[in-house]
Every structure is written in C-alpha cells, then in structure tokens.
C-alpha cells in the first residue's frame, strides 16, 4: 500500500531514472533528489541510465552533465547529448550558427568526431553503430556511425505516420505507426540490418496510438489503453514478445472493471504497472498499481486535492510521483508490502 507523504506546489515537470528523482519548479529551479543543482531552466533534466544527468541552461542555451558516480559536472557548451554509445562516448548534436551537426563526443577527452552537418531529421534510436532516423513521419533510415553513410531507407506511408521507434531487439526493429484517417494503429517489425518489413501487427488488436512501450527487463512490447470517456469502458492490455513478435496477451484487465478504472498514463516498475485512471469524470483522478503477471489490482486511490487532470506519473525508489495540471506534485510512499 502507498500513502500520501508530501505535496509540493509550483512544479513544472518531473523525471526519474527509477532510482533518482528530478523536478523543475515554476520559478525555474532544478532539483535532483531534493538538492538544488541549477537555476534558470524551464526543462527537467535527462538521465542516461544511472550514470549521468544532463540539464540545460536557459540564460545562454548551454548544457551541462553530472557524472552521478563521481559528482563531477562537465560543461558541454552548445552540445546536446542524445544517446550514450559507450561509457564515455555520446551521440550528440552540436549547435553551430543555428544549425545542428551530428557528432560523437568523448566526455573525458573532449574529442568530437563530426558525422554529419546541418541535420534536419529526428534521431530516434541508437542500435549498435547505427542511428535510426525518422524523416517527416514517413521515411525511416539507418545511418552508420562508422561510415557516415545511410545503409537503408524505407517508406512506411502505406501504414500511416511513424509515431515511435520503440526498440531494436536482436534483429527486430519495432515501430509504432498511426493511420488516424482509418483509425488504424500498427506495430511494424523491421529487419534492423536491411529495413525490410518482417511483420505487421495491429489487425484485430486495440493498440494504443501513443502509449506503447518496450519493457526491456521482459523483452516485451506493452500497449495498455482505455477510451477516454465518462462511461464504463474496459482497459485493454496487449503484450508482445519483442524477440518473436508473438502476441502473448490481448486481454481486458478484469480487476479494473468493478472500480470502473480506465487507464490513462502508465509506467512499468519492478514487475508492477503503475497507472493513472479516470472513473466517472472525464479527467484522470485516480492512481493505482497492478501486478504485471496476474493483472491483479493491488492498490488504488483517488488523489486528494488534485486540480485538473493528472498529467504525469513517475515511479522511483518505492515512491509514486503524480503531477497535476496546475503543478501540484503529490508524492506517495510505500508503507507496507503489497506482495
């Protein structure tokens, strides 16, 4: 069970790496595990695993990174880190005269290797030595960081618009694609080495259009959604084996039906699913916890004194952090075993 432990006001955003917790206030102060580390930023920091924490300065648009082990802060200037390639190496974007250059940065030696100048596409995923790139929602490309050349390109427009490049698991590259005109959402499995479409999932599945996640620990893809309505409607959970593409579960979460909980946002943490939900109102009002395997409803509560909807939910270190629309952060702490 969890109980409300603390309430903070004037919070603009929150983030976590499952262990540490960061928030930014409306006064533009950034806190990491309750220690103020910076002022003048309107954004939250970004964690690279448990090792690094990146944050941005609003006054001069520069970035800094903290090594969470040594507590050393490195100033990055106008380099923004995107992916951790190896221990000290990062795939990064360097701003030069309003243009973005793709570089590989060694944090310790400060060496930078230019891969491509003036990029205008979205970098979505790092898979070994290749970057998966999305151009205008339709085309997916694979750029080799070793040669700086594209290895393949595929047009996915017949399935709709590319929404999320979810994960590369072994040779499977999973991409969520939305076709809003026909209300069709598909999970495409591409061969990561060639870009060839190997599998299309979606037909007969009530997939979420945006809230599909890769659960690394389980090597599964999870879609968990409900419709946003004032009337009772089921929450549907779909679990797919990311290595084989097999649909493992495609079910209504029965335990949420009686309390009339319709899932909104959700997070996987320690074999549990933490979620926000709406019941009789149009806005999310409740939070709860499900067992990942049995989908038994372990606990739920209405968030007291919330204002507007619950716009973010994060879980770290036996605490549930819920941010509401006006910027009140509701912190719930584990008080007893819910096994």
């Amino acid at each position: 069970m969890f109980k409300l432990k603390e309430v903070k006001t004037d919070i603009s955003c929150i983030s976590t790496n499952n262990k540490m917790f960061c928030y930014n206030t409306k006064q533009e102060e950034l806190f990491l595990d309750e220690i103020k580390i910076h002022t003048i930023t309107s954004l939250c920091g970004y964690f690279f695993s448990n090792e690094y924490f990146l944050y941005s300065n609003k006054d001069d648009y520069t970035n800094s990174i903290i090594d969470l082990r040594s507590k050393i802060t490195y100033s990055l200037g106008k380099v923004s880190l995107q992916f951790q390639k190896s221990n000290n190496e990062f795939v990064a974007l360097e701003k030069v005269e309003g243009k973005r250059n793709l570089v590989i940065l060694d944090l310790l030696s400060k060496e930078k290797k230019l891969i491509q100048e003036n990029i205008s596409f979205g970098i979505k995923l790092l898979s070994n030595n290749n970057l998966i790139i999305n151009e205008v929602w339709i085309t997916l490309k694979s750029l080799s960081l070793l040669t700086g050349k594209y290895e393949w390109e595929v047009d996915l427009s017949e399935y709709g618009e590319i929404r999320t490049v979810l994960a590369a698991v072994q040779d499977n590259l999973w991409v969520l694609v939305n076709d809003y005109k026909n209300n069709r959402h598909s999970l495409l499995c591409l061969d990561v080495t060639s870009g060839r479409i190997m599998q299309v999932l979606g037909e007969g599945l009530r997939l979420s259009d945006a809230h599909v996640k890769y659960i690394e620990e389980k090597q599964t893809l999870l879609s968990f959604k409900s419709s946003i309505s004032a009337v009772p409607s089921p929450s549907t959970l779909i679990e797919i084996d990311a290595t084989t593409g097999q649909v493992l579960r495609n079910i209504t979460v029965e335990s949420m039906l009686a309390p009339n909980l319709k899932v909104g946002l959700w997070q996987y943490h320690n074999n549990k699913l933490f979620f926000t939900a709406n019941t009789t109102m149009m806005t999310t009002t409740h939070i709860g916890v499900l067992d990942y395997d049995t989908l038994q409803l372990l606990w739920y509560t209405e968030v007291p004194d919330r204002k507007g909807l619950l716009k973010d939910l994060q879980v770290a270190d036996d605490k549930i952090y819920v941010l509401d629309q006006v910027g009140t952060l509701h912190i719930f702490e584990k008080e007893s075993s819910i096994e």
Binding site: L43, N57, F121, G122, R163
Partner: peptide, 24 residues
C-alpha cells in the same frame, strides 16, 4: 511541449532530449 506524445506528433525532428535552445 509538456505532452511529449503530442509534441512528437507535431514535429518529427525533435531531438531525443531537447534542450532550452531546442525549446526556443
């Protein structure tokens, strides 16, 4: 901007973790 799903749908070229300069 605070709705990452929506902003990712509006702009396909937003970096993975945008900084203040990107936000601007």
């Amino acid at each position: 901007w605070s709705n990452t799903a929506l902003r990712g749908n509006l702009w396909s070229d937003i970096p993975t973790n945008p900084d203040e300069d990107d936000k601007n």
